[in-house]
Protein backbone atom coordinates (compact mmCIF):
# COMPACT_ATOMS: atom_id res chain seq x y z
CA UNK A 1 0.00 0.00 0.00
CA UNK A 2 1.22 3.50 -0.81
CA UNK A 3 2.20 5.42 2.31
CA UNK A 4 2.25 8.77 0.52
CA UNK A 5 -1.31 8.23 -0.63
CA UNK A 6 -2.40 7.46 2.94
CA UNK A 7 -0.57 10.51 4.35
CA UNK A 8 -2.30 12.86 1.93
CA UNK A 9 -5.65 11.14 2.57
CA UNK A 10 -5.30 11.51 6.35
CA UNK A 11 -4.18 15.14 6.02
CA UNK A 12 -7.28 15.85 3.98
CA UNK A 13 -9.53 13.94 6.37
CA UNK A 14 -8.09 15.77 9.36
CA UNK A 15 -8.53 19.18 7.74
CA UNK A 16 -12.18 18.40 6.91
CA UNK A 17 -13.07 16.99 10.33
CA UNK A 18 -11.20 19.59 12.38
CA UNK A 19 -13.63 22.26 11.17
CA UNK A 20 -16.26 20.60 13.34
CA UNK A 21 -14.14 20.68 16.51
CA UNK A 22 -12.68 23.41 18.70
CA UNK A 23 -8.93 24.08 18.45
CA UNK A 24 -6.88 21.55 20.48
CA UNK A 25 -9.76 19.09 20.64
CA UNK A 26 -8.81 15.82 22.27
CA UNK A 27 -11.54 13.94 20.35
CA UNK A 28 -10.41 14.79 16.79
CA UNK A 29 -7.75 12.10 16.14
CA UNK A 30 -9.55 9.32 18.12
CA UNK A 31 -12.69 9.98 16.07
CA UNK A 32 -10.86 9.67 12.73
CA UNK A 33 -8.74 6.70 13.82
CA UNK A 34 -11.63 4.70 15.27
CA UNK A 35 -13.90 5.50 12.31
CA UNK A 36 -11.35 4.08 9.90
CA UNK A 37 -10.81 0.93 11.97
CA UNK A 38 -14.55 0.38 12.45
CA UNK A 39 -15.23 0.98 8.76
CA UNK A 40 -12.61 -1.64 8.01
CA UNK A 41 -14.51 -4.14 10.14
CA UNK A 42 -17.86 -2.93 8.78
CA UNK A 43 -19.32 -4.21 12.01
CA UNK A 44 -20.77 -1.16 13.66
CA UNK A 45 -22.33 2.14 12.81
CA UNK A 46 -19.63 4.67 13.71
CA UNK A 47 -22.12 6.98 15.39
CA UNK A 48 -23.67 4.37 17.66
CA UNK A 49 -20.24 2.91 18.44
CA UNK A 50 -18.93 6.28 19.66
CA UNK A 51 -22.08 7.23 21.55
CA UNK A 52 -22.27 3.83 23.24
CA UNK A 53 -18.94 4.51 24.87
CA UNK A 54 -20.61 6.67 27.48
CA UNK A 55 -21.85 3.46 29.03
CA UNK A 56 -18.89 1.38 27.97
CA UNK A 57 -19.02 -2.28 29.00
CA UNK A 58 -22.49 -1.80 30.41
CA UNK A 59 -24.90 -2.36 27.56
CA UNK A 60 -24.08 -5.87 26.45
CA UNK A 61 -20.84 -7.35 27.73
CA UNK A 62 -20.86 -8.53 31.33
CA UNK A 63 -18.78 -6.04 33.27
CA UNK A 64 -18.51 -8.20 36.38
CA UNK A 65 -15.58 -10.55 35.89
CA UNK A 66 -14.26 -13.17 38.31
CA UNK A 67 -11.20 -12.24 40.36
CA UNK A 68 -9.18 -14.94 38.56
CA UNK A 69 -9.95 -13.33 35.18
CA UNK A 70 -8.84 -9.90 36.44
CA UNK A 71 -5.62 -11.30 37.90
CA UNK A 72 -4.91 -13.19 34.69
CA UNK A 73 -5.43 -9.98 32.68
CA UNK A 74 -2.79 -8.13 34.72
CA UNK A 75 -0.38 -11.05 34.80
CA UNK A 76 -0.56 -11.95 31.11
CA UNK A 77 0.55 -8.51 29.88
CA UNK A 78 4.18 -8.03 31.06
CA UNK A 79 4.05 -4.22 31.20
CA UNK A 80 0.88 -4.33 33.29
CA UNK A 81 2.33 -6.98 35.53
CA UNK A 82 5.28 -4.77 36.41
CA UNK A 83 3.18 -1.59 36.64
CA UNK A 84 0.81 -3.23 39.13
CA UNK A 85 3.36 -5.50 40.84
CA UNK A 86 2.61 -4.01 44.25
CA UNK A 87 -1.17 -4.47 44.01
CA UNK A 88 -0.70 -7.99 42.64
CA UNK A 89 1.64 -8.90 45.51
CA UNK A 90 -0.75 -7.41 48.10
CA UNK A 91 -3.76 -8.99 46.38
CA UNK A 92 -5.33 -5.51 46.43
CA UNK A 93 -8.49 -6.42 44.52
CA UNK A 94 -10.20 -3.09 45.06
CA UNK A 95 -7.38 -1.23 43.25
CA UNK A 96 -7.06 -3.91 40.56
CA UNK A 97 -10.81 -3.91 39.85
CA UNK A 98 -10.82 -0.13 39.43
CA UNK A 99 -7.82 -0.27 37.10
CA UNK A 100 -9.36 -3.19 35.17
CA UNK A 101 -12.48 -1.16 34.31
CA UNK A 102 -10.35 1.42 32.49
CA UNK A 103 -7.62 -0.84 31.07
CA UNK A 104 -9.63 -3.85 29.86
CA UNK A 105 -11.53 -1.95 27.10
CA UNK A 106 -8.21 -0.55 25.81
CA UNK A 107 -5.78 -3.46 26.21
CA UNK A 108 -8.22 -6.38 26.43
CA UNK A 109 -10.85 -5.46 23.84
CA UNK A 110 -8.66 -3.05 21.83
CA UNK A 111 -11.24 -0.33 21.37
CA UNK A 112 -9.62 1.96 18.76
CA UNK A 113 -11.25 5.18 20.01
CA UNK A 114 -9.95 4.68 23.54
CA UNK A 115 -6.61 3.45 22.24
CA UNK A 116 -6.06 6.71 20.38
CA UNK A 117 -7.49 8.84 23.20
CA UNK A 118 -4.78 7.46 25.48
CA UNK A 119 -2.09 6.94 22.84
CA UNK A 120 0.50 9.11 24.64
CA UNK A 121 0.10 7.17 27.89
CA UNK A 122 0.21 3.85 26.01
CA UNK A 123 3.44 4.90 24.32
CA UNK A 124 4.94 5.80 27.68
CA UNK A 125 3.36 2.71 29.31
CA UNK A 126 1.87 5.05 31.90
CA UNK A 127 -1.09 2.81 32.81
CA UNK A 128 -1.78 4.50 36.12
CA UNK A 129 -2.31 7.78 34.30
CA UNK A 130 -4.84 6.08 32.01
CA UNK A 131 -6.76 4.83 35.05
CA UNK A 132 -6.76 8.18 36.83
CA UNK A 133 -7.70 10.14 33.67
CA UNK A 134 -10.08 7.58 32.16
CA UNK A 135 -13.46 8.99 33.15
CA UNK A 136 -12.70 12.73 32.96
CA UNK A 137 -10.95 12.43 29.59
CA UNK A 138 -13.57 10.16 28.05
CA UNK A 139 -16.34 12.46 29.33
CA UNK A 140 -14.55 15.48 27.83
CA UNK A 141 -14.03 13.78 24.45
CA UNK A 142 -17.67 12.67 24.28
CA UNK A 143 -18.85 16.14 25.31
CA UNK A 144 -16.81 17.62 22.44
CA UNK A 145 -18.44 15.20 20.00
CA UNK A 146 -21.91 15.92 21.44
CA UNK A 147 -21.29 19.66 21.04
CA UNK A 148 -20.25 19.41 17.38
CA UNK A 149 -22.17 22.07 15.45
CA UNK A 150 -24.09 20.70 12.43
CA UNK A 151 -24.07 17.13 13.80
CA UNK A 152 -25.91 15.69 10.82
CA UNK A 153 -23.19 16.84 8.45
CA UNK A 154 -20.50 15.67 10.85
CA UNK A 155 -21.65 12.02 10.88
CA UNK A 156 -22.22 12.16 7.12
CA UNK A 157 -18.72 13.54 6.51
CA UNK A 158 -17.21 10.92 8.79
CA UNK A 159 -19.01 8.18 6.90
CA UNK A 160 -17.81 9.58 3.57
CA UNK A 161 -14.22 9.65 4.82
CA UNK A 162 -14.50 6.02 5.96
CA UNK A 163 -15.88 4.98 2.60
CA UNK A 164 -13.09 6.85 0.78
CA UNK A 165 -10.58 5.06 3.02
CA UNK A 166 -11.95 1.66 2.02
CA UNK A 167 -11.79 2.61 -1.65
CA UNK A 168 -8.00 3.07 -1.25
CA UNK A 169 -7.77 -0.69 -0.87
CA UNK A 170 -6.98 -0.87 2.87
CA UNK A 171 -9.71 -3.39 3.48
CA UNK A 172 -7.43 -6.01 1.92
CA UNK A 173 -5.10 -5.87 4.94
CA UNK A 174 -5.75 -7.26 8.42
CA UNK A 175 -7.03 -4.99 11.18
CA UNK A 176 -3.78 -5.14 13.15
CA UNK A 177 -1.69 -4.26 10.08
CA UNK A 178 -3.91 -1.25 9.32
CA UNK A 179 -3.84 -0.18 12.99
CA UNK A 180 -0.05 -0.18 13.02
CA UNK A 181 0.19 1.67 9.71
CA UNK A 182 -2.34 4.30 10.78
CA UNK A 183 -0.64 4.80 14.14
CA UNK A 184 2.72 5.33 12.41
CA UNK A 185 1.30 7.91 10.06
CA UNK A 186 -0.74 9.71 12.71
CA UNK A 187 2.49 10.06 14.70
CA UNK A 188 4.21 11.56 11.65
CA UNK A 189 1.31 13.96 11.11
CA UNK A 190 1.43 14.87 14.79
CA UNK A 191 5.05 15.92 14.60
CA UNK A 192 4.37 17.89 11.40
CA UNK A 193 1.50 19.83 12.97
Amino acid sequence: MDEKELISFLKQARSVIQDFFPVDSIALVPVIFSSLIWSLNRRRAIKSQILEMRIWLEPETLKNKPVEFILDFFESIPDLKSAYAEELADHDLRALRTAFKALYPILGLENPFLEKLFSEELKKRDYRRIVSDFHPRLTQALAEIEAVPGKRNFWKTLKEISEAFLSLGWSLMTESQVREELKKIFDKLGTEA
Binding site: N41, R43, R44, L57, E60, T61, L62, E68, F69, D72, S76, G108, L109, E110, N111
Partner: peptide
Amino acid sequence: LPSEEIYRDNDNQIVFCYRT
Protein backbone atom coordinates in the same frame (compact mmCIF):
# COMPACT_ATOMS: atom_id res chain seq x y z
CA LEU B 1 -22.84 -13.08 19.09
CA PRO B 2 -24.69 -9.78 18.92
CA SER B 3 -21.78 -7.32 19.05
CA GLU B 4 -18.08 -6.90 18.42
CA GLU B 5 -17.38 -6.23 22.12
CA ILE B 6 -19.08 -9.44 23.23
CA TYR B 7 -17.29 -11.37 20.50
CA ARG B 8 -13.90 -10.11 21.71
CA ASP B 9 -14.80 -10.55 25.36
CA ASN B 10 -15.83 -14.14 24.59
CA ASP B 11 -12.50 -14.78 22.82
CA ASN B 12 -10.66 -13.45 25.87
CA GLN B 13 -12.68 -15.90 27.98
CA ILE B 14 -11.57 -18.77 25.71
CA VAL B 15 -7.90 -17.76 26.12
CA PHE B 16 -8.34 -17.36 29.89
CA CYS B 17 -9.84 -20.86 30.17
CA TYR B 18 -6.97 -22.25 28.08
CA ARG B 19 -4.33 -20.67 30.32
CA THR B 20 -6.06 -21.76 33.52
